[in-house]
Design a binder for these strands. Structure first.
Lengths: 205, 205
DNA sequence: CAAGATTGGAGAGTTCCACTATCCAGCATA
DNA sequence: TATGCTGGATAGTGGAACTCTCCAATCTTG
């Protein structure tokens, strides 16, 4: 198919497809002439993934490219993908406060018995939030943190179960990305609904 | 204190403070003369909260204003805050697909016995993601959804426990906002760490 | 009490991002 | 052969989040 058909089938404008190609989110088509190229179902599939990551998950184009690069580099290795596909995280200036929080995060990881090698951004993101809560005078106590961690562990268990049924490796890798990245807002939405219910229950409304 | 001291103590530039005042995130100081106003610790506190919501949580200025308005309007009612303080969510076009997913979400809410009245944005956010996953050929099955929901319920339990110790109502309301909004990236970070561990465990690495 | 810095308020300017539009020569189709 | 589509490049758009500049009034310092 040519670009206009790709556009029609994906619902993404030709101009935007060109933009994604320029930005390295989407590979170019197979050129058939100087001003002609051929696109296939892989392109369509990739384009849908891009739109999901940008539109539903709210990732930036840059963050999306990072995720996609991890996807293509590590297609054979689902485990690595899970470690890599975490997307955008803020760059944190290293204050003394942050260092202390980072140490607390590492203690938590040890306490949970988690074997975590890379994932520096998740560690700093966590330390970041803990530091901010401290600054705001609403520190999160160790017990709560531990309970959250245990629930996260169970959640990850459900996540990994979802990967079992995957047929080919490409699909497994893609599914891993979707579960780490795309499911985030859904889980947060679930938590909000549960909060409202739990609040109503405790206040006897 | 005057604006420059507020700036120095908060680490936010004077220009930005003025911008937040213009945008309605921060109330004006108490005017003492035509070109002078007095700020207090409440302003400083509010400013730190704003920076946390924008910087750490990544909320937009508009979304932050919504959260802050909910905070000031419903200070006395923690439950309402929890329902309101969910911040930015994408506007979804109502396709037939979406309707089906929304029905599934409602079935889930019923199955869980959740009493949820408002929170339309959490419902659509959830339906959105389910629809997208379906479109991408990686549907989330009912069992997994139910397991996620149960974990969300337990997470909400921990959340609500955190509110117990609050002394005054203002603090309770603020804490509710921080827990619904600011803790999100932390929980997602925990999930990522847990995923990496769980993946390593299952693959015997 | 004069000089210099600071202030509140408002408008304009800046930077970044995610597109979107325009242009062009080459190609496909009728 | 004319009409429209194509890849590639460049420029333009609109929104968001600041940031700068200006002003007269006011405060502070010497």
């Amino acid at each position: 198919m040519r670009i206009s058909e790709l556009s029609r089938r994906s619902g993404v404008s030709v101009a935007t497809i060109k933009y994604y190609i320029r930005e390295g989110l989407l590979p170019t088509g197979r050129p058939t002439a100087a001003t002609q190229a051929e696109y296939d179902d892989q392109h369509l599939r990739r384009l849908r993934l891009i739109r999901a990551l940008i539109g539903v998950r709210g990732l930036s184009v840059n963050a999306t490219r990072d995720v996609l690069e991890a996807l293509s580099q590590e297609q054979a290795d689902t485990h690595r993908i899970l470690g890599l596909a975490l997307g955008a995280s803020r760059l944190a200036e290293e204050t003394a406060q942050e260092h202390r929080q980072l140490a607390e995060v590492d203690t938590l990881i040890e306490e949970m018995g988690w074997r975590v090698h890379s994932n520096a951004s998740a560690r700093t993101a966590l330390a970041d939030t803990l530091a901010t809560l401290d600054d705001l005078g609403v520190p999160l106590d160790w017990g709560a943190l531990l309970r959250y961690a245990k629930l996260a562990e169970q959640t990850a268990g459900v996540d990994l179960d979802q990967l079992e049924g995957a047929e080919d490796l490409l699909e497994a890798a893609e599914r891993a990305v979707l579960l780490t990245t795309l499911l985030e807002p859904a889980l947060l939405a679930l938590r909000k609904l549960a909060q409202e219910h739990e609040s109503a229950r405790r206040h006897n409304i």
